[in-house]
Design a protein around this nucleic acid. Sequence first.
DNA 1: ACGGGGATGAGGTACGTACCTCAGAAATCG
DNA 2: CGATTTCTGAGGTACGTACCTCATCCCCGT
Lengths: 344, 344
Amino acid sequence: MRPTTKDLAKAAGVSLATVDRVLNDRTGVREDTVRRVSEAIEKIGFLRNISAANLARSKSYRFLFLLPRTGDQFLAELFAKISEANSAFGSDAMRAEVAQIHESDPHQIANFLEALHPDAVDGVAIMAPESPQVRDAKLRLEQRGIETVSFISGQIRADADLAAGEFIGIDNHAAGATAGRLMGRFLDRQAGKVLVIAETMHARDSLERRLGFDEVIGADYPYLTVLPSLETHGEAERTDRIIRATFARNPDIAGVYILSSEARVPLQTVTQLTQGGHRVVIAHERTPFTEAALVARQIDALITQDPGHLVRSALRILRARCDRREVLASQEKIRIEILFAENL
Amino acid sequence: MRPTTKDLAKAAGVSLATVDRVLNDRTGVREDTVRRVSEAIEKIGFLRNISAANLARSKSYRFLFLLPRTGDQFLAELFAKISEANSAFGSDAMRAEVAQIHESDPHQIANFLEALHPDAVDGVAIMAPESPQVRDAKLRLEQRGIETVSFISGQIRADADLAAGEFIGIDNHAAGATAGRLMGRFLDRQAGKVLVIAETMHARDSLERRLGFDEVIGADYPYLTVLPSLETHGEAERTDRIIRATFARNPDIAGVYILSSEARVPLQTVTQLTQGGHRVVIAHERTPFTEAALVARQIDALITQDPGHLVRSALRILRARCDRREVLASQEKIRIEILFAENL
DNA sequence: ACGGGGATGAGGTACGTACCTCAGAAATCG
DNA sequence: CGATTTCTGAGGTACGTACCTCATCCCCGT
């Protein structure tokens, strides 16, 4: 049988009331009594029964995902997984909701965050580009007792944040390097140019992917030339136009790397221009469109992060932080997945 | 607020006692009363609070992993992850233990399973090759109320089992196909022979990997010749000897595919024989050894399944079955991961 | 020596569910 | 119709923890 608070009280030679005071950080306990209880916890291996505790304080967790207002299929995947998580964790007294904001307006994001009240929300997963306003708003949220995590893109302060579960998402530098390795190996000894397409290079994740990509290509495949990144700004017409123009100017494009998470629009143009050729195309994120393109051999490889894992990981980390618990680091590490048609 | 049994009783127009009888499948309730309660459950969206239920019946879950007696680093990883899961799920009233058996002796396995008692074990994850004895023993376990799942290798009855969470592990045919694709692309247009090394081809997972591998190579890379599988039987001396002999007979070996989960021993010999050459080496499973080999460029790619995910998935599935709950299928799908030095 | 305040104990109620008993209502049978 | 049998309701206790109140005790300073 697992020891209970009752056993703990007996082992520490104190009453249940004192055990409760120590366990819940209440005032009015002498320091050496705290120590005695802590030692007893170690000695008998007491573990608080979180189910019972949550039952007693009839606590439930309300979490919020703050996502961009505009997006395409990857955003839709995230929505689907959040609602899936809601039904899966429903019996666990936690609920996740979504709010959408214009990701390009740091002021609006900060205002939104300021308006959140600890009575209504226990934690927020924020998918938004880095900015001082948002960073400050996050700090103030945490002071008010609302937990926060950076989701997929956004505020990374240091490598240590990754370990601490501050950031939920893949290591984008490594993802870019992986793309570079695949591109290099798939274009085996074949010289040529490589086109890189991004939504915007102002986002930290795009920058890091590009950096990782260039590093590998530069080091191991010097006969490949990586062109400057094309920026689509998420506009379909512009995307089509600039890709066509670049292909026209560079007939020797051997590979295409689409590093933004919404690949559908650029991919449509690239596919048309690559008809029958032997170009290697690598893109990010698994969506109905990219999946179909992979099967149709219009893409050679996909580099992805599992949206279901992202969502569940965010929820588990927020929850653990609310409970002041450690998380299982190895479970929360978001893997860089590589998909071919064979391992879909 | 989530509806409770009290709300359910009111909504169904019955007493708490009757609600309890219906929820826990007790006898002595008229059929149309059951129906009324069920309808009320739907109507008010009642969800049983499993924490409270487990608290009330002071239930804890005891699960058992049945693993092979002999193994190397992959087995060690599994052990580590099981003990990790124990501490992570410890506050959740579930405990996992390990038993080891000679995997090659179906009789001993069956005897072991027969001896398990529902009072001592709630569920078993079995990693053992397919055999009629084990299959029967599993069925009898389930009749006695002990849940079972096939773990990593072993009894697959049909594709439907995969969906139902009967089998926990990757799709080995797809894994072999993925290896084949990588081998083909990395050996771009370079003709030669491909060596395949297995522990034994009597195991279903090895067979399926080989099948998938051959399919892709045969279809898309006809200039490659895949040699008959070498069987190591897990013996170090024999492994070294037969690999050396095969290399001596086939100087034009361009690629090596090690399809068993313990790659260390064969890999040591292969690495020696490949010194300075340009052979493509693909192996399975991430262990300290294969990871180091990947970084040292002695392996070109690793095809893996996350042992932590395997273990947690097994536990979640067993637990859900004990609770007669559905699992979240997308979370339990074990992905075929591809590792390069860049995305470790 | 005494008051005051901090530390501690004793005991209660609550959370949502399981499981038990017993009384009484309703349905079924002869 | 009464006598069974079957169903249902009311109420209790328990699980492990949180949170509350009140009484008591000890230590401190005066």
